[in-house]
Design a protein around this nucleic acid. Structure first.
Lengths: 115, 115
DNA sequence: CGGAATCCCTTTGGATACTG
DNA sequence: CAGTATCCAAAGGGATTCCG
């Protein structure tokens, strides 16, 4: 028998996930980095996830960096070069996101209207 | 060789997906309906996805209904009873969302700060 | 080149009150 | 019970400008 003070419910994984990767471009960016599976320059990434703005791309990358999903490498050259790369932790999301992408491709037609 | 007019890039599945199930509560609601795998009353669903507001729950359910992921059944009784249930199409998302939930549970600790 | 900063409009979503 | 309607604050996010 549980008491009033027993916390039997774990935090909802889905709520946590949404809080983790929120924002219109979060998943597209992360998945792109995962698929590329190599260091990629800021500019190249922006073109790959077009038409994202610099501001949004920067914000999301900072967020991913702060939780350990992405690394950032700055090369103090002229002109400056900055490369981003998914971490090993980030790569563990690959099967899940592959599945998501595949689902979307398979059911795009089937879904009523919106797309 | 592609020309300037050849559209070789398919629409990004991830962008489509995010547009499809956007919003703070979308995935938690849908996953709950999938896990329950049965008709569930509005009130019960709200309690299950607490602390969501009536307004948000209604909005999301309408959205899911409109794209064919969820069905709505109204019973004109007193008091009114309305039941929601995931469709067969919605159920096809189960493996993917299971994977997502599992990933979150496995890596909750590992992720820096935010949670 | 890769931002940071600013401006500003749009969207989201919480709280509350009301209704059939 | 299951909404709908309203109000309002906060967040999202695009466009633009400036900078090392």
């Amino acid at each position: 028998m549980t008491t009033l003070f027993t916390q039997s419910t774990e935090p909802c994984p889905m709520v946590d996930f949404v809080n983790l990767v929120s924002g219109k471009w979060a998943i597209p960016i992360l998945y792109r980095l995962i698929v590329v599976d190599d260091a990629i320059r800021f500019g190249a990434l922006q073109r790959a996830v077009a038409p994202i703005t610099q501001k949004e791309l920067t914000k999301q990358l900072r967020a991913f960096e702060s939780i350990g999903l992405v690394t950032r490498a700055m090369y103090p050259e002229m002109p400056p070069r900055v490369e981003y790369q998914v971490t090993e932790l980030g790569k563990t999301l690959k099967p899940t996101l592959d599945s998501l992408a595949q689902w979307m491709r398979e059911h795009r037609e089937e879904l009523s209207a919106p797309l």
